[in-house]
């Protein structure tokens, strides 16, 4: 009898563990799709390692030698919002726009070019590198920040990221709710 209870208990524990592992693995798979958005030019052009943003789908250096500066909003006479308005301009080839147009501040560059998906994942959820954000604040940024939303309405001549914004947020939330894993369960053992 004791043996039977032990066997059943072990089986239940294993099943629970497998369920947890499956959930994490699904979360990780969701993140791999999230990463395809994070590494799209609409994100990477401002999430740069240096002090100058990029522009266009090819990620060429931004015109006018603009700089990130201390607050991510440009140098005194070359603020981002000197040209970028709160909405896209109707004129072809004019600067795109969204509320509070900016780069990340130098303390939280969140630059992902050249990183593996695992490295992107780890840097994204590291409060030491992401501006002190917890997972819920990251979800808030990707779902509600209007400059993120602009990525899906970038104006003429600019491509949108591979997922719709809604799908992107759903996968991001799935990843966060699964414990924000940065790899498959077995590979992380």
């Amino acid at each position: 009898m004791k043996l039977a209870v032990a066997v059943v208990g072990a089986a239940l524990l294993a099943a629970a563990s497998n369920t947890g592992a499956n959930r994490e693995d699904e979360g990780w798979r969701a993140f791999t799709e999230v990463a395809a958005v994070l590494t799209h030019p609409r994100c990477l052009n401002c999430h740069v390692p240096g002090d100058s943003p990029l522009q266009g789908d090819e990620g060429r250096p931004h015109d006018m030698n603009v700089r990130r500066a201390a607050d991510g909003r440009g140098t005194p006479a070359a603020r981002c919002t000197n040209c970028h308005q709160t909405a896209n301009s109707p004129a072809p080839h004019s600067p795109p726009g969204a509320p509070d147009w900016r780069l990340p501040p130098p303390s939280a560059r969140m630059a992902w070019r050249g990183l593996t998906t695992e490295e992107i994942c780890r840097s994204l959820k590291d409060p030491g590198r992401n501006g002190g954000r917890g997972l819920s604040q990251l979800v808030e940024h990707v779902s509600k920040d209007q400059i993120v939303n602009w990525g899906w309405d970038p104006g003429p001549g600019r491509g949108a990221p591979p997922l719709s914004h809604g799908e992107f947020v759903r996968r991001f939330v799935q990843w966060a709710e699964s414990g924000a894993p940065c790899g498959l369960f077995q590979e992380r053992r």
Binding site: N65, V66, A78
Partner: peptide
């Protein structure tokens, strides 16, 4: 920037 360097000027007026 009351006392700008050449680089400050170039950055400010590049546009």
């Amino acid at each position: 920037v009351p006392d700008p360097t050449d680089a400050d000027i170039d950055d400010a007026l590049a546009g």
